[in-house]
């Protein structure tokens, strides 16, 4: 496995990704030109393509954040959406109600998310396996109930916050799809760098040791409390950043977005790509994020397919599409 992140391959990939909006809007131009000559191409509009891609990138960010806990430390987190919710509402409420700037709110949301991660982590440090999974699940459901019920806090029924203003940079409102695309791209690249650096450091090796055998790790002098707490905090902070981005991207948010099944959807991505790998999380989130958007009109069948996918992966390829062995 290459320890270096910035190899020629990834740099070329990155440049290609940066030019993506040109391709999306370029196809728009071509469609327009051909349409004037009487040829109608059945291509989606550039805005639509970019919206789907931004959504998928957001899921990549979330999958990378979630991956830290089950993938690196081996503890199944069933309530990741809780941190997404914390970030979403921190940003949504501060921006829409108090008019704070997004650039202050974003780091604040990350810190707030990390705090909740530590808060949830403190009592669960002793727990492993099923019990940890249940507590994480209960925790996110409690947060969901709170934003759904506490109208004095949220200011609307069912956790409804509307008219979240876009971020402003040098006097420009960043609310166009291509701007959102670069916005999420920067956040995503930062996340990849942070997660990659962590994974290939002393911390990452300690996490892997905890994953493989907690007791052995402890007897080797790894402080379980510290390293687990760090994993929870980093993972939660990334989730909250995703939530903050989501809040300004969607403009209106409601509690319904943060239901339990969203956690499972993100888990599905991590599992599909291969738990414990950065590439796997990105691949899984890319596939399911785009697929989820394209299959939106199929409603419930979409979730049915995801469920079958989970079962099939666990049965036939438990290590995911990119298994850890292939990467190492």
């Amino acid at each position: 496995m290459p320890r270096k992140l910035f190899t020629s391959k990834t740099v070329i990939l990155f440049v290609a990704v940066c030019l993506f909006p040109l391709i999306a809007y370029g196809s728009d131009r071509i469609v327009d030109l051909l349409y004037e000559r009487g040829i109608a191409l059945p291509l989606p509009s550039g805005d639509y393509i970019l919206r789907v891609v931004v959504q998928a990138c957001l899921y990549m960010l979330l999958a990378l954040g979630l991956n830290i806990v089950p993938g690196f430390t081996g503890l199944l987190d069933l309530g990741y959406v809780g941190f997404y919710l914390v970030g979403g509402y921190t940003a949504g409420l501060l921006m829409a109600r108090l008019g704070w700037s997004y650039w202050i709110v974003l780091p604040l949301a990350a810190v707030h998310g990390a705090l909740w991660g530590l808060l949830r982590g403190a009592p669960t440090l002793r727990l492993t396996g099923d019990y940890f999974a249940i507590v994480t699940f209960g925790f996110s459901e409690l947060l969901f109930r709170i934003v759904k019920n506490e109208q004095w806090l949220i200011g609307g029924p069912n956790g409804f916050v509307n008219d979240i203003p876009p971020p402003i940079l040098f006097g420009y409102q960043l609310n166009k799809y291509w701007q959102q695309y670069y916005h999420i791209l920067i956040l995503l690249v930062l996340t990849i760098v942070v997660v990659h650096r962590l994974q290939h450091s002393r911390v990452g090796r300690a996490w892997a040791a905890i994953r493989e055998d907690e007791r052995a790790a402890e007897s080797m002098g790894i402080n379980l409390r510290e390293y687990k707490s760090l994993a929870f905090a980093v993972s939660a902070a990334i989730g909250a950043v995703g939530g903050a981005f989501f809040a300004q991207f969607q403009v209106n948010i409601s509690a319904g977005v943060f239901e339990f099944w969203e956690s499972i959807f993100i888990l599905c991505m991590v599992v599909l790509g291969g738990m414990g790998t950065i590439k796997g999380s990105i691949l899984g989130a890319g596939i399911l994020g785009v697929l989820g958007e394209l299959l939106r009109e199929f409603g419930g069948w979409r979730y049915l397919i995801f469920g079958i996918l989970l079962i099939l992966i666990m049965r036939f390829r438990p290590a995911g599409l990119l298994s850890k062995k292939e990467q190492d």
Partner: peptide, 15 residues
């Protein structure tokens, strides 16, 4: 591993 069975059970519930 127990995690695989748990994830399968969640998938089943979703289906």
């Amino acid at each position: 591993p127990r995690l695989s069975a748990l994830i399968t059970a969640i998938g089943m519930s979703l289906v």
